[in-house]
Design a protein around this nucleic acid. Structure first.
Lengths: 108, 108
DNA sequence: CGGAGACGTATAGACTGTCGATATAGGCGG
DNA sequence: CCGCCTATATCGACAGTCTATACGTCTCCG
């Protein structure tokens, strides 16, 4: 049993949300997620890149090669229109799920 | 793409919580979860039983054959001491996770 | 009674997503 | 020039969920 396993299914949501802040390259997204969640989530490369590729495949992201702030070659990702729609859907889904579980947990 | 896919990792939590209401057989647990979450989650047999077996294997539950209210043979599950401890841990974990995601989602 | 259907448990197979480990490549500094 | 950091990438293992299917048995009803 790992330690800070992030809930399956939430990674897409976090990536999409992060990209609303502007285009960003892979590791920068991961860092931003760690930061936004105050360190609660650490996204490992082995999870991040498969997710990015899958999401690009799905048409939610578009990408473009560029250069990072530190002069390394980096692939910049940007939200597509479909991605924005997906984000909205996943935010709503998250709302439903978290309310449902909160409901269950407060049951005496 | 199924419809009401429940987040991986939350099933154990919901089962453990349900069993704090008293011992219960498999399908009754599933029905109770649907009810506690106001229909948001439907736990299918193909998810439920593997989970129950896994959790019993882990020592969180104990089981005993008996008879259901409708006179069918049914296996009654009960929380063990370790199960109560596990529930507490998972409740806390859920708290951390949901706060972290809420934090990320409210980021402007 | 005899068949239909509901109840309850169970498993197999496909599929998806995460993780750890490892690899490559280029820039930067000593 | 060599080691370290950044950045992307992939592979294999693994866990957990879903669909579909199966089987026994109790109840109800014709």
């Amino acid at each position: 049993m790992g330690q800070t396993n992030l809930l399956q299914g939430t990674l897409d949501l976090l990536i999409l949300k992060t990209l609303t802040l502007g285009e960003m390259h892979g590791l920068a997204i991961a860092r931003r997620i760690t930061q936004m969640t105050k360190g609660a989530f650490e996204v490992k490369p082995g999870s991040l890149f498969p997710a990015l590729h899958r999401m690009e495949e799905a048409g939610w992201l578009s990408s473009e090669w560029g250069e990072s702030e530190t002069n390394r070659r980096a692939k910049y990702y940007r939200l597509s229109k479909a991605g924005r729609k997906q984000l909205k859907a996943e935010e709503e889904e998250w709302g439903r799920v978290s309310v449902a579980i909160a409901l269950a947990l407060q049951t005496t």
